[in-house]
């Protein structure tokens, strides 16, 4: 056992790519990230409702931006991250990378949905309509479809190895297509309708910027915590026949 441990040392950065080593590590990390997420969300929401002043044009309705903007950013970032892990899976052939990709997809889809939903709630009082076929809205909607396709493909294939490879390939195809889709939609939008609403580029007040950043970090922490939880569940499901997991779960009780 001791010899085995010392052999692993040189490749220490790959050490946690094994579910056996990753599972307890993730367990230790989750409370920290979750705690940070809760503290930051509470702080951010307090700033949102009580500290930042109302917008001189949009009044109070703009406050939903502190949820909407981080959610929209995260939705796009998570797709890239997911494709990165899918690529990592093909290069290193470690199951954990695939589990990360699969777990990220669900959080990404949820954030995409939240971004669309809060965007609609902001659009009604500001633009007077729930939805416009604006380039950004349309590409966000298509991003949601890409996530849903990825999640459905994973869910439809029972064999975890095949599911990992097939969905990984789809994520890579998707990430190649994302810029093409984005620029096509942008071009389509400028061709079809001249009267699309443009957000005016006024500089943001410092406290608004700080609030936004707090919320962004809160969303990051939440994503990390939730993804780690989901990966742990996935490990339990896949490794349920192994001895180390039984021991590990026994320790937790």
């Amino acid at each position: 056992m001791a010899a085995e441990q010392s052999e692993k040392k040189p490749t220490s950065w790959l050490r946690f790519s094994s579910p056996r080593n990753f599972y307890p590590l993730a367990g230790k990390m989750i409370p920290w990230f979750m705690g940070l997420a809760i503290v930051l969300v509470l702080a951010g929401l307090y700033m949102t409702f009580f500290v930042v002043p109302p917008d001189y044009q949009q009044g109070n309705s703009y406050r939903i931006m502190y949820i909407h903007v981080p959610a929209a950013w995260m939705s796009m970032l998570i797709y890239l991250l997911m494709a990165f892990y899918a690529g990592l899976y093909f290069v290193l052939n470690v199951k954990l990378a695939d589990m990360m990709a699969g777990s990220l997809a669900i959080t990404g889809a949820i954030f995409t949905f939240i971004a669309l939903w809060t965007g609609a709630m902001w659009g009604k009082p500001t633009w007077g309509t729930w939805w416009v076929w604006d380039a950004r809205l349309t590409s966000e909607l298509l991003l949601l479809f890409l996530y849903l396709g990825y999640i459905s493909l994973r869910a439809a294939i029972d064999d975890p190895n095949r599911a990992a490879k097939a969905s990984g390939l789809l994520a890579l195809v998707g990430v190649v297509n994302v810029p093409i889709i984005y620029f096509s939609v942008k071009w389509w939008n400028t061709l079809h309708q001249g009267a699309s609403i443009t957000t005016n580029k006024t500089s943001m007040a410092t406290e608004m910027f700080i609030t936004l950043m707090i919320m962004v970090f809160a969303f990051w922490m939440y994503t990390i915590a939730v993804v780690l939880m989901r990966v742990r569940n996935e490990i339990i499901e896949r490794e349920r026949d192994t001895n180390w997991l039984v021991e590990e779960l026994g320790k937790e009780k």
Binding site: L142, F145, L146, L148, G149, S152, L153, L170, V173, G174, N177, I180, I181, S184, V185
Partner: peptide, 9 residues
């Protein structure tokens, strides 16, 4: 579901 979003461009 997989390919319709990719058809958009």
């Amino acid at each position: 579901l997989l390919i319709l979003p990719l058809f958009v461009p």
